[in-house]
Amino acid sequence: MYEHILFPTDGSDGAGAALEHAKNIAETHDATLHVMTVLDTTSPHIGMTAAGPAAGSTGMIAEEPSMTESGMVGEDHSVQAHLRERSEAIVDAAVDEVDTVETVTAVESGVPHSAILDYADENDIDLIVMGTHGRTGVGRYLLGSVTEKVVRTSDVPVLTVRLGDGDED
């Protein structure tokens, strides 16, 4: 029934709760589990500073053009390269949890829900398994929900796994 299962993850607790379900379904159907994350390059916060009430910035931009330290915009590697490394670590951590099934990994860039749906189409995905925080009302509306957008627009079934009260730290 299922040959290719997609597990999109952002490394959150909600995604972690869904991983066990994705693994069990993949084992049951001898399916390949595609583990992916999306590097959201549309975020307006990449490379920006955040001045706090205690003074100063996050340290992401040097005060002088000649000053650069690890993590600052303008150092030898870009912010996007750093974010890609973090994204790859998220995918690798998930794969380490599912060593009993065949896996394929991917780090995509773009708008998260669109990248997930594009990946599903391009890789003949039969089922998408996603975590959700279970927010409702204004909280969900203001924060948006990648999972909700995928559920509403996907051509393939989407299994959502809610982070339960006992799952949070």
Rank of each mutant, 00 (worst) to 15 (best):
H29E: 05
E27N: 03
D40T: 00
T41F: 03
A51Y: 10
E69W: 06
T68P: 06
D30P: 00
S70W: 11
D76C: 01
G52D: 09
G59N: 07
M67F: 15
T37S: 11
E63F: 11
S78K: 08
V73M: 13
T41M: 08
G71S: 07
G52Y: 12
M48W: 04
A51E: 10
T37R: 01
D30S: 13
M72P: 05
M67E: 15
E75P: 01
P65D: 12
H34A: 11
A26V: 01
H29I: 01
A26L: 02
A54G: 01
E63L: 15
A31S: 12
T68E: 01
T49Y: 00
S43P: 00
M36I: 11
S43I: 03
L33Y: 02
D76R: 11
T28C: 03
V38P: 02
A26S: 07
A50T: 08
H45S: 10
T41S: 09
G71W: 08
I61A: 07
G47N: 01
D76V: 13
G47Q: 06
E69K: 05
A54R: 06
I46L: 07
M60F: 12
A62R: 10
L39E: 10
G71E: 08
A51C: 00
E69V: 10
E27F: 07
P53A: 15
E75N: 07
T42A: 03
H77N: 11
A51W: 02
M72A: 07
A55R: 09
E64Q: 14
E63T: 13
S57L: 02
M72Q: 15
H77K: 14
T28R: 13
E27Y: 00
S78T: 15
H34L: 06
G74T: 06
M60T: 12
D76I: 10
M60E: 12
E63Y: 09
L33Q: 04
I46S: 00
M36P: 03
V35I: 13
T58Y: 07
E27A: 05
E64P: 04
G71M: 06
P65W: 09
G59Y: 03
G56I: 09
P53Y: 12
M67Q: 14
D30C: 04
A50N: 03
A62T: 00
S70G: 06
M72N: 05
T28P: 03
A31W: 04
G52P: 04
P44C: 09
T42M: 11
A81F: 05
D40V: 02
A50F: 13
H77D: 15
S70T: 07
V73T: 15
G56S: 09
T37P: 02
S70M: 12
I46P: 02
S57K: 00
A50W: 08
T37I: 03
S57E: 05
